[in-house]
Simulated scan of single mutants.
Amino acid sequence: MLAGLLLQALAFTGIVTASKPWGRPQGPHHRPACELLSQDDANLLIKRWTTTLTQTNSDLGNTSATWNYLLADEFKLVSGSIQTLQQMNVNGNYDIYVGKQVYIANELKYGALYAGVHDLDIIIGCNRVVWYWQVDSVLEAKIKVRGVNIFSLNNDQKITQLVVENDSLAFAINFGANVTFPAFG
Rank of each mutant, 00 (worst) to 15 (best):
Q55T: 05
G176Q: 13
I124F: 00
W49M: 04
V129N: 00
N68T: 08
T13I: 09
T17W: 06
D95V: 15
N178E: 11
V78T: 13
G125M: 03
S168F: 10
Y132E: 09
I15E: 10
G14K: 12
V117H: 02
S81K: 05
C34T: 08
Q83D: 05
D167Y: 07
Y132H: 13
K76C: 06
D121H: 13
D73L: 10
T84Y: 06
S152P: 03
R48A: 03
P32C: 03
C34M: 12
V90H: 08
P182R: 14
L60Y: 02
H118Y: 14
G14E: 06
N89L: 10
L60K: 04
N178T: 13
S79P: 08
K142G: 11
N91L: 06
G92A: 07
L169E: 08
L37M: 03
K76M: 08
V90C: 11
I96L: 10
L162V: 10
Y97Q: 08
F151R: 04
L169G: 05
H118E: 15
N166D: 11
A183H: 15
V117C: 09
V78S: 09
V102M: 09
Q161G: 03
L70P: 00
A18V: 08
L162M: 10
L169K: 13
W133A: 03
E140Y: 11
S168A: 13
N174G: 14
Y94A: 06
G14M: 07
G116Q: 07
A105Q: 15
L153T: 06
N174R: 15
F12W: 13
S168N: 14
A170H: 14
L6H: 12
K100Q: 02
L44H: 07
D59E: 06
G99C: 09
L85E: 06
R146N: 13
Q101D: 11
I15R: 13
E74P: 02
Q101L: 03
L153H: 01
G27D: 05
L77Q: 05
R24E: 10
N57I: 03
N154H: 07
D41I: 00
V102A: 09
D119I: 05
G14T: 09
V102I: 11
H29M: 12
G99I: 04
I46N: 01
T51G: 01
D41A: 04
T51H: 00
Q134P: 08
W133E: 04
I173N: 04
Y114V: 13
S64K: 14
S79R: 05
V102N: 14
L113K: 15
E74R: 10
V78F: 05
L108G: 02
S79L: 06
T180N: 15
I46M: 04
E140M: 09
S137A: 13
V98Y: 07
A183M: 12
D156V: 06
Y94F: 14
V117A: 07
I159N: 02
E107H: 09
E35Y: 02
C34S: 12
F151P: 01
P25I: 03
A72C: 02
G176I: 10
T52F: 00
L85P: 03
A115E: 14
V78K: 09
R146S: 11
N155C: 04
Q86H: 11
D40L: 05
V129K: 00
I150K: 02
A11K: 15
T84A: 09
V130H: 01
N89V: 08
F151G: 00
I46K: 01
V135I: 15
